[in-house]
């Protein structure tokens, strides 16, 4: 699949933002006043920035509001509804914490649940697609999005204790996702033989494509650049997203300045690492339509 920068930025940033909102909603930390303002500014900046980035890949972004209507059947619509509900609920929580010094616990819990729900609905947009076997792995794909979002949220919220365990969990999920994903296409049983229905007659080979140039399908779904670097990018992404933040958390240091700079390194490394794995999430995903073109 074509790794559209807008979608990578969106899933990476909004995942982190909603992860942070989850912890803020649960009162971890129970910030008030200016401290709360900074936390919420970061969380809303990431979540809203990500959502805005996601509208950049639309053909007709001015009609994006229509996407709230089909929540009964569409995961994309559910994501939009859930995101707006989470942001509005957490806005109430933020205002009461920042300006009235009075966090509303129940509103915070509701906002936390909706924030996690938003990340889950995002993951289901990809998980539901049978046409992309590497994504069509329930519950591994949602688990990947959720653990990375919560680990990043814990890092941003300064919840070191939770962050360590969530990073280990996210790392394990990432490895499991890669391991199972590598055989997902062949496990799906879809081949050029089933695609053409001609498999029973002999070995099918794509002889001539329908046209000499490229087309929307090939550009969007048969993206092959970068797959050859997948091993190296997996190492880079895993190191930056999981190992570097873990080391930053586990190295015993004294002094607030050093501790804060290590935390900043952990957060930045994690963000770049997650963006890297998210790039692979798209670049490595193979759509079955490529079979019709003798490609994957």
């Amino acid at each position: 699949m074509h790794p559209a920068p807008s979608v990578i930025v969106f899933t990476t940033l909004s995942g982190l933002g909603f992860g942070l909102l989850f912890f803020l909603g649960l009162g971890m930390p129970a910030a008030r006043g200016m401290v709360a303002f900074v936390f919420y500014a970061i969380a809303f900046g990431l979540a809203v920035g990500g959502l805005l980035a996601s509208t950049l890949h639309l053909g007709r972004p001015e009609r994006a509001w229509k996407a709230f209507s089909q929540w009964r059947s569409s995961w994309l619509s559910r994501e939009g509804c859930c995101a707006v509900a989470a942001l509005l609920t957490m806005a109430v929580h933020a205002i009461s914490a920042i300006f009235f010094d009075h966090p509303l616990a129940l509103v915070g819990i509701a906002g936390a649940v909706l924030s996690v729900g938003t990340v889950f609905t995002t993951s289901m947009i990809y998980t539901q697609l049978k046409t992309v076997p590497r994504w069509n792995m329930f519950p591994l794909t949602p688990a990947l999005f959720l653990t990375l979002s919560l680990a990043g949220g814990a890092l941003l919220a300064g919840q070191d204790g939770q962050a360590i365990w969530l990073l280990i969990l996210a790392g394990g999920t990432l490895l499991a996702y890669w391991y199972q994903g590598d055989s997902a296409f062949s496990d799906s049983g879809t081949t050029l033989a089933t695609a053409t229905g001609l498999g029973g007659r002999g070995e099918v080979r794509a002889f001539e494509p329908p046209h000499t140039g490229s087309n929307y399908l090939l550009r969007e779904m048969v993206h092959q650049v970068g797959r050859k670097h997948s091993r190296r990018l997996r190492w880079i992404g895993f190191t930056l997203a999981i190992i570097v933040p873990l080391l930053c958390l586990l190295i015993p240091v004294t002094g607030l300045a050093l501790k804060h700079s290590l935390a900043a390194v952990a957060v930045l490394a994690h963000m770049v690492g997650v963006a890297c794995t998210r790039w692979l999430f798209f670049a490595e995903a193979e759509h079955v339509v490529g079979l019709y073109y003798g490609k994957r």
Partner: peptide, 27 residues
């Protein structure tokens, strides 16, 4: 007139039956 050109339907189709028109921005 309702299509936002998100492209998800084209992703969900195993047959490559849907193509986003780059001039109109709709499927």
């Amino acid at each position: 007139s309702d299509c936002i050109g998100c492209g998800l339907c084209a992703w969900s189709c195993p047959y490559g039956a849907r193509e986003l028109d780059l001039a109109a921005g709709v499927m």
